[in-house]
């Protein structure tokens, strides 16, 4: 079984798994970072969205061997110390989640969006978030939360 070195949330993990193993199973089942969720396995629902070198990607369709070259992987657990990322605070303010299962993916996708564009229009939010499904139908509150976070950040940065 080959060994892989992964940089996740600024920590180095070593894991022995078969080549071709989905990064999602490595993260969840081997390393125990279960905040990243399995929803479809074919990059259609976005529940497994993580950041690889700051780019949002669907972990379920990534193979472990392609991400052990020092790429910086970030999961929901590493988004912010003390869970106080502006989006996490805004998510609570907007009371966005219901069942909560998709929300890690939603927040990771939104974090990547705000990194790229701190003040997105509603149309941009919808287009960038379109890949993340929510069966409970919390979409309007997710939009509200992203808008709250964006406006708080802009205010705090003057």
């Amino acid at each position: 079984m080959p060994n892989y070195k992964l940089e996740i949330n600024e920590k180095t993990y070593k894991v022995a798994v078969a080549e071709g193993t989905s990064l999602l199973w490595v993260i969840r089942e081997h390393l125990g970072l279960t905040g990243t969720k399995y929803g479809c396995g074919i990059a259609q629902c976005g529940a497994c969205t993580i950041h690889v070198d700051n780019v949002p990607m669907r972990a379920c369709v990534l193979q472990v061997e392609n991400f052990s070259d020092g790429q910086k992987i970030k999961t929901i657990e590493g988004l912010a110390e003390n869970s106080d990322h502006p989006l996490q605070k805004a998510w609570i303010e907007a009371q966005a989640p219901q069942c909560g299962y998709c929300q890690s993916g939603q927040i990771m996708q939104a974090a990547a969006l705000l990194n790229e564009n701190p003040n997105p229009s509603r149309a941009e939010i919808k287009s960038k978030m379109n890949g993340i499904l929510c069966r409970c139908g919390t979409y309007l509150r997710i939009i509200k939360a992203i808008e709250i976070a964006a406006s708080n950040e802009i205010t705090s940065k003057g």
């Binding site: 657990e77 869970s83 989006l87 927040i107």
Partner: peptide, 9 residues
């Protein structure tokens, strides 16, 4: 339940 639904816990 929302605080632990926004941090993966």
């Amino acid at each position: 339940d929302i605080p632990e639904k926004v941090n993966g816990k």
